[in-house]
């Protein structure tokens, strides 16, 4: 087999298949984890009928969604209605292409990178792609020809535009510290600085995380699908597999936000406290732990936080949501950019 075909076609294809499989599997079991954790927080048992401890529940759910009748409401705008779930799912999966999950490793003398692409505009690209995902929600809400859906779609558009801006500024302060837009470069910068960026950038992380939760429409910012007011918001009229796509995209987006928090603020695949515990991590037993394990552990913690929030916080009112976004987070994130700039000058100068 010619080398070019192997390098340009076969290896990326294998990576794509593995990535998609793993992501979708995690998404499926994230729904199980959410139901189980929420149940324990509310002193219930959660799913426990299908398989041991309910382990097969996500698979049963998936099968059920596949065979369900696919309804299209009478007054719906047919083409847009069918397009919307795709418009939200594709960007959600596309974003995984640039996220670095671990350090390069060798297989048979060939260096394999556990990420698809290390582009030099990774962060800008992620922000751009995630802003395309909004269209799935708006168009899905509009095309359903239902007032609940439309209200949900409009709310979500307003919310996602508002929170994208402080999120962007929070990311800018990380870029200032790392001096690169590449995600691999950001992790390398943290390795060289011997410090996770969350310590100098604690404020930026707070802003990023709040905006990240708001961007994924999760509690306490789940206004686009506020059950009490809007039935199910933008996906009220969707059924079967199309509903499942909205659902899966939400969880995939949660994974992206968690993965980005890990990469930008918590050292990606680096072990914890690389400066203080360097001797410990170099010991023969622990040095064998691959970076992917650390990455998964950190990401898992953030995903747990998502579920934890849902079990803890009540929902914001819409005017409160806007006030928090524009009157608090935006000025705070701008101030943070200046603060980080001054600190960088002081530290380097």
């Amino acid at each position: 087999m010619p080398e070019a075909v192997l390098n340009l076609l076969l290896i990326p294809l294998i990576k794509i298949v593995v990535l998609l499989g793993v992501v979708l599997l995690i998404v499926a079991y994230l729904t199980y984890a959410e139901r189980k954790i929420l149940a324990y927080m509310q002193v219930r048992l959660g799913p426990n009928r299908v398989g041991p401890k309910g382990w097969l529940q996500p698979i049963a759910d998936g099968l059920k969604l596949f065979v369900k009748e696919d309804l299209i409401p009478g007054g719906a705008e047919r083409f847009v209605f069918l397009l919307a779930p795709g418009l939200i799912m594709v960007p959600a999966l596309l974003m995984f292409a640039v996220i670095p999950f671990g350090e390069p490793f060798k297989v048979g003398g060939r260096t394999i990178t556990p990420y698809l692409a290390d582009v030099n505009i990774a962060i800008l690209l992620l922000l751009g792609i995630s802003s395309i995902g909004v269209f799935g929600i708006i168009l899905g809400g509009w095309s359903s020809n239902s007032k609940f859906s439309l209200m949900g779609g409009l709310r979500s558009a307003a919310q996602m535009i508002s929170y994208e801006i402080p999120m962007g500024f929070a990311v800018v302060s990380v870029l200032m510290m790392a001096g690169t837009l590449s995600l691999v470069g950001i992790v390398e910068a943290q390795r060289q600085a011997h410090i996770w960026f969350v310590l100098p950038g604690i404020l930026a992380f707070g802003i990023y995380w709040i905006c990240g939760v708001a961007e994924t429409n999760r509690n306490p910012f789940d206004l686009p699908e506020a059950e009490a007011e809007l039935v199910a918001g933008f996906h009220t009229e969707y059924s079967g597999m199309k509903f499942a796509l909205f659902f899966l995209a939400e969880y995939a987006n949660m994974m992206v936000i968690s993965a980005l928090a890990t990469v930008m603020f918590f050292g990606g695949w680096l072990p914890p406290f690389p400066n203080l515990l360097a001797g410990l991590w170099a010991s023969p037993v622990l040095a064998w732990i691959p970076g992917v394990v650390w990455f998964a552990a950190k990401m898992g913690f953030f995903l747990f936080c998502y579920i934890w929030f849902r079990g803890t916080f009540p929902r914001y009112r819409f005017d409160q949501l806007m006030a928090v976004g524009w009157k608090w987070l935006l000025p705070l994130s701008l101030a943070n950019v200046m603060l980080v700039g001054v600190l960088m000058l002081w530290w380097k100068g």
């Binding site: 800008l124 751009g128 909004v134 558009a157």
Partner: peptide, 25 residues
């Protein structure tokens, strides 16, 4: 690359959402 990413963020992500807002309302 920079221009491309900004095009996505500003035009596709920001301005188009506002367009759709107006059209739907």
């Amino acid at each position: 690359e920079f221009l491309g990413a900004v095009q996505l963020m500003v035009y596709a992500g920001g301005i188009m959402v506002l367009f759709l807002f107006v059209i739907m309302l």
